[in-house]
Simulated assay, not measured.
Amino acid sequence: MSDKLKLANQVCFPIYTLSKEVINHYRPLLKELDLTYPQYLVMLVLWEEGEQNVSTLGAKLNLDSGTLTPLLKRLANKNLIERNRKATDERVVSITLTAQGKLKKKAAQSIPSKIASSLNVSTADLAQLKKIIDQIITQINKEK
């Protein structure tokens, strides 16, 4: 077998494994907030930037509408967000936080530090990893 086809030589496998492991560390913390990881990502964008339309939110999270729409419906059912069609263009759906959604931010404040601690990796190493990942994603997106 070619060395190129050995699992140990694949860059995709450790990225996949790391992604699963990191998300597994989020699960118990997010369970306390009654959020899934993708729901948490939506909430992060809304806490940071406020009102978003669905297409902008999808672009920021790299999620298609088929994935995003049911996720947003579940957040609306939990009374964390409101989905409203724009009066000026009914094709555009605006997403805003409810009062309860805004309050959830306070409960989530400790998650980043708890994750960093649970991973048992230095913040410097995490920052370096993020920088490298961001560079790779930027390079990939340039080629699109």
Rank of each mutant, 00 (worst) to 15 (best):
M1T: 02
S2D: 11
K4F: 15
L5E: 12
K6L: 09
N9D: 09
Q10F: 09
V11Y: 09
V11C: 07
C12M: 13
Y16W: 15
L18D: 08
L18W: 10
K20I: 09
K20A: 11
H25D: 13
H25N: 13
Y26N: 04
Y26A: 01
R27I: 15
P28Q: 03
L29M: 05
E32V: 04
L33G: 08
L33D: 09
D34G: 03
Y37W: 14
P38Y: 05
P38M: 03
Q39F: 07
Y40D: 03
V42K: 00
M43P: 03
L46C: 00
E49W: 01
G50Q: 04
Q52G: 01
Q52H: 12
N53R: 03
N53K: 02
V54P: 01
T56W: 13
A59Q: 13
K60Q: 13
L61P: 08
N62P: 08
D64Q: 10
S65W: 11
T67D: 05
L71H: 12
L71M: 11
L72Y: 09
L72A: 02
K73S: 12
R74F: 10
L75Y: 11
L75I: 08
K78P: 02
K78D: 05
K78M: 03
L80W: 09
I81V: 14
R83D: 03
R83G: 00
K86G: 06
K86N: 15
A87M: 15
A87Q: 15
D89G: 09
E90L: 04
R91H: 15
R91K: 15
V92H: 10
V92A: 04
V93Y: 10
S94G: 06
S94R: 15
S94C: 12
I95Q: 06
L97C: 11
T98Y: 04
Q100V: 13
Q100L: 12
G101W: 00
G101Y: 00
L103N: 12
K105W: 05
A107G: 06
A107E: 14
A107Y: 12
I111H: 02
I111F: 02
P112D: 01
S113W: 07
K114G: 01
K114I: 02
A116H: 06
S118P: 00
L119K: 06
S122W: 02
S122D: 03
T123S: 10
D125W: 03
D125H: 06
D125Q: 08
A127P: 05
Q128K: 14
Q128Y: 11
L129T: 15
K131D: 14
I132V: 13
I137C: 07
I137V: 14
T138N: 01
Q139R: 13
I140Q: 14
N141E: 10
E143W: 08
K144W: 07
